[in-house]
């Protein structure tokens, strides 16, 4: 059993948001065609990549994802005309922000995969898994814990100081 986030063999956990019409269908096609790929992604189905709220990505990182992948229809092919463009706009902004926060850009990825591109699912997933594996665990939940600890100590020291000053 590969044991996540512990001393044993670590493998990344990647949360994927796939649009119903193109990329989710492509992943189905990969299945029907038995195109083998890395087992590290967990797909959440959304109707359109435009539905992917930046909060979903941040939440996924915060809850322990090592990478987040968004899959949508190719530009010009969106089932809802232009949802993928809106996703792209948000994505670029968000990637800047997460990079500034210290999350490596390779951990957040947007790919256009059409319903017929079962093999592209394999290529993208394998590539992302290998890149994120090289980066190592992101482990935000543990970091949050240690930051909370630090904050407690910090607050405690302030309290002590305040008490001291009062005296």
């Amino acid at each position: 059993m590969p044991n996540h986030n512990t001393e044993k063999q670590w493998t990344p956990k990647i949360v994927a948001f796939f649009c119903n019409w193109c990329t989710y269908t492509a992943a189905d096609l990969a299945g029907v065609s038995r195109i083998k790929h890395a087992p590290n992604i967990r797909v959440i189905r959304v109707m359109c990549s435009g539905r992917v709220d930046p909060q979903f990505l941040l939440d996924a990182f915060a809850k322990g994802a090592d990478g987040v992948l968004i899959g949508g229809c190719h530009p010009g092919d969106c089932h809802y005309i232009e949802g993928n463009y809106k996703c792209l706009r948000r994505f670029q902004l968000l990637q800047k922000m997460t990079t500034d926060m210290g999350i490596e850009p390779d951990r957040l990825r947007l790919e256009w995969i059409s319903a017929s591109e079962g093999d592209k699912v394999r290529v993208v997933v394998n590539d992302m898994v290998s890149k994120v594996t090289k980066l190592g665990p992101l482990g935000l939940p543990d970091k949050f814990k240690s930051w909370d600890e630090e904050m407690k100590i910090f607050e405690h020291s302030i309290e002590e100081k305040e008490v001291f000053e009062h005296v």
Partner: peptide
């Protein structure tokens, strides 16, 4: 039902049936 507006609403006051924020957040969790 694409949900693009839902993802954009700054106050979270648009709800998409079957793909509500709570539903997706609990899926992530």
């Amino acid at each position: 039902g694409c949900g693009t507006c839902v993802a954009a609403c700054p106050s979270g006051s648009i709800i998409q049936n079957l793909f509500e924020d709570e539903e997706i957040f609990s899926e992530i969790e």
